[in-house]
Design a protein around this nucleic acid. Structure first.
Lengths: 346, 346
DNA sequence: GTGATTTCTGAAAACGTTTTCAGAAGCTTT
DNA sequence: AAAGCTTCTGAAAACGTTTTCAGAAATCAC
């Protein structure tokens, strides 16, 4: 334990003294508001550079009642999908001169509440959130006071807030249509449990309607809701032991896809020979799996960018004293065809 | 554009008025410092709850000269390795009551500098960083004033700062030994270009020494430094066209591993029949590849946790007016054996 | 009943900025 | 030469907290 004398932090006053001007002048140079004589500006700038001075963002934010930064609350950073989203958000923020703070709710409503409060206390100018809960009273409270807020990937009903989602209904429609076109007629779907949040419901709905559109009936036995790896294996066993075995599986999450692949592996079922598999969400490893995976690709980067741009617009409007009418933007998923459904490629 | 009257933000004064006490008293209740009569405490707490008041962190931080939060600067969020690290950091922070801000340098020294300055301006109590550059003068400056700082995964020579790394030397040693034990004697290694940062060098060193230890000589032709997917394919072609073809490939990064797999695929080389492949860094998809990938696993979660705990210790010490002697912690990688090196499994 | 504690509370001074207000100095215009 | 603009600058008042200081009220010891 050696004792290094902790240098006192530099303040605007030190710069003012060094430059031989008042602190107001220093402030004016930094924010370049108001008239400043060229000579003065140079003196001050030199002092700032010489001392390597950086203004205290807390003091600045306190006075200005803004922080030029926005918060992002994600529910599952482990999912590569979110990393693409994140990239879009980052780019948009950087372009607009905002900085981005990230918190992870791990899909826990309680943690989500804490995260929001954390951001509010820090006086962030706006929040982008992938909601983990549907009934969080904070949402309504924020909406009521026109706090800049964007929901990402999940709708929250009953709350009028800017929302950016992918068309989940269309996603499973595309998937089922693709499978049906390949002659599959016993298409099972695997989902993680609900937590009442929208994409799951919409995906299931798309699945059902697409089946109907292709003249197939929905068999409840083919709808599997699993929570753990073990659930998944059990569900698969059950599915394959009965008489009406499926000839295709539609996974609705990319971690789930890996679990399904595992289950099929241990049961010695070959993809796509014995059964077709179609995954939701494109990842960097999708094409490297055995076999290369056919997937539904959501426009993750664009979703992130859209959400951030929307939020930044709302913040600007609020500063002008206006309030924008909340909007829901829905982006379209696409089908990425590879080999896991038994497609014939040339 | 409807106009919702923006509610004025609540301050401690509103709470004081509502509770019929002074603002000092409110502050004392919130921070529970000092004696407070039970009746008063209750009154104040009720007022806080009734108004749903949350203190302004900017004002608080300004006065207290601390923010109880630390910053994390990562260079490549896309790599799943970092997500595991992140989880460890998050857990440690949460346990200690710190909140965590994340910025992404994208391995760009300039952006890294901006990120550090951003954090400093925000008066964060400490920073964990995966350095993108080796000669950033900010590092030395921070070290000189005993600012709490931890380097993660990469050493920066010439700067005495807490550092948490994995033993990269041992990592490639393990890998080569495993391959040699399986009878491989033409072991190629693939690396991304340097940017002067340590792991690469150490991994290469471990590779060479392990070869020597097994009586194999290092052939420079077997060391491939590639930057892009195309480089990778080109390198692979060259490698396989010559006379001294390799019988094993050691990849040093998991995105690189996927690129290698692609290259082998297009060249119609089968793993592990034609060539063995061993990957660095364990990911959730490692075991789902074709074939399941043998890898070097780095203790990512532990690295994150260690780094955060170390930083938090340093912050606490600094508050007591002490300075801790910088320490380098090195964690051990392990070998995860699967099938991609032609192992015989029962 | 006096003095010394202990318990409680409020006024006011910070923290480091930005911004308002007012005024000085240098130009034009009359 | 007076008046009116510009152009520039500084003093001082915020912003919303915590903390110091001082003092009031209650409790205790004699």
């Amino acid at each position: 334990m050696t004792d290094i004398p902790a240098k006192r932090k530099l303040t605007i006053e030190d710069v003012a003294r060094q430059a031989g001007v008042s602190i107001s002048t220093v402030s004016r140079v930094m924010n370049n508001t108001d008239y400043i004589a060229d000579a003065t500006r140079r003196k001050v700038q030199d002092a700032i550079d010489a001392l390597d001075y950086r203004p205290n963002a807390l003091a600045r934010g306190l006075k200005q009642m803004k922080t030029d930064s926005i918060g992002l609350i994600l529910s599952d950073l482990q999912n590569p999908f979110w990393l693409m989203v994140l990239e879009g958000i980052e780019d948009a923020c950087q372009e607009a001169g905002y900085s981005l703070l990230i918190l992870n709710s791990r899909d826990d409503p309680e943690k989500e509440g804490k995260n929001i409060k954390e951001f509010l206390m820090r006086q962030l100018d706006g929040i982008i959130i992938n909601p983990a809960s549907e009934d969080n009273p904070l949402f309504a409270a924020l909406a009521a006071e026109a706090f800049p807020l964007v929901f990402l990937n999940r709708r929250v009903k009953g709350v009028e807030v800017d929302t950016v989602v992918a068309d989940n209904f269309k996603g499973t429609m595309l998937a089922v249509s693709h499978l049906a076109a390949l002659g599959k007629n016993r298409i099972a779907i695997f989902l993680y449990p609900a937590n009442g949040i929208s994409p799951r419901q919409e995906r299931l709905e798309g699945y059902k309607q697409a089946l109907a559109a292709h003249g197939l009936e929905t068999d409840p036995a083919l709808i599997k809701i699993v929570e753990t790896k073990e659930d998944c294996l059990a569900a698969m066993k059950q599915l394959l032991s009965g008489s009406g075995k499926p000839d295709a599986i539609l996974s609705t999450n990319n971690r789930l896809t890996l679990e399904i692949l595992d289950a099929l592996g241990t049961l010695n079922i070959a993809v796509p020979q014995d059964i077709a598999l179609l995954g939701y969400d494109e990842t960097e490893w999708s094409k490297h799996l055995n076999p290369p995976l056919t997937t539904i690709r959501q426009p993750a980067y664009e979703m992130g960018r859209e959400a951030a741009e929307r939020l930044i617009l709302a913040i600007a409007a609020k500063r002008r004293g206006e309030t924008m009418q909340p909007v829901t933007v829905q982006l379209e998923p696409t089908l990425v065809i590879r080999e896991s459904c038994g497609e014939i490629l040339q």
